[in-house]
């Protein structure tokens, strides 16, 4: 094993871990919020909003993520330019985060919707019957139970998102894979497989940690499902 290759590249790769985590975390946080709002509309009564969201969601679910990233990357500056706002200075990562947030929101919405439909309606009525207002019932009964039902599907989504941060390098945003590729081309391909292998191991470790986190969370949420 060419240890000097590793020695020279590992610190740089590790330095990119925070960026990768940022590209994972920010879209995840935004998508949890936006996906919840979309879900509320999707299970709600407002026809116009319902159809607007449905069209939005089918676009993001029915087209490749990479195409969406390109469209946002090239299209958004033009859109802003049309209203005389210059966003050319934005880093590529910002476009990646926007595209991923929108895409992920749609998937989160569908997962949450499935979870919501699985919530025992009797619990919602019990909340009403003890005098919970709409928001109290949402935050005290509906949201926690929806989350509990959805948690394993959310985990799968989140692991995909973490891995797909590697796509960011295609629009020039720097993260683990982007850095690896740059080093590889700087060295004219020397040690390519080793470098990619190390990158893969870093991704693997990050995914494993995420998996552990979710498993612990779902275990905590299901503590009341055990009989003893």
């Amino acid at each position: 094993m060419p240890t000097h290759v590793l020695q020279s590249v590992l610190p740089g790769l590790l330095q990119q871990v925070p960026t990768t985590l940022l590209y994972w975390f920010v879209p995840s946080a935004i998508a949890l919020l936006l996906g919840t709002l979309l879900c509320i509309v999707r299970v709600g009564q407002h026809r116009v909003l319902y159809w607007a969201c449905t069209v939005f969601i089918s676009f993001f679910r029915g087209t490749p993520g990479i195409v969406q990233i390109y469209i946002i990357f090239f299209g958004l500056p033009k859109l802003f330019w049309a209203v005389h706002v210059d966003i050319d200075g934005w880093p590529a990562g910002a476009y990646f985060i926007i595209a991923t947030s929108l895409n992920l929101s749609c998937f989160v919405c569908e997962v949450l919707k499935g979870g919501y439909l699985g919530v025992d309606h009797g619990q919602i009525e019990a909340g009403k019957s003890i005098g919970f207002g709409r928001f109290q019932n949402f935050f005290r009964v509906i949201a926690p139970q929806t989350l509990q039902i959805s948690i394993l599907n959310l985990k799968n989504l989140e692991i995909d998102v973490l891995k797909d941060t590697s796509v960011a390098y295609t629009i020039g945003a720097m993260e683990i894979l982007g850095y690896a590729n740059r080093v590889i081309s700087n060295q004219f391909g020397v040690g390519q497989l080793w470098i990619l292998g190390v990158a893969a191991i870093i991704y693997f470790i990050l995914c494993a940690l995420l998996e552990l986190g979710f498993t612990a969370a779902s275990h905590h949420m299901e503590r009341h499902g055990r009989r003893s």
Binding site: D120, G122, Q123, E125, A126, G127, S129, I130, G131, V141, P144, Q145, Q148, M221, H224, G225
Partner: peptide, 13 residues
Amino acid sequence: TAMVFQSYNLFRN
């Protein structure tokens, strides 16, 4: 008011 349901409807969590 308060209500007691046929199927209890306790908050299971």
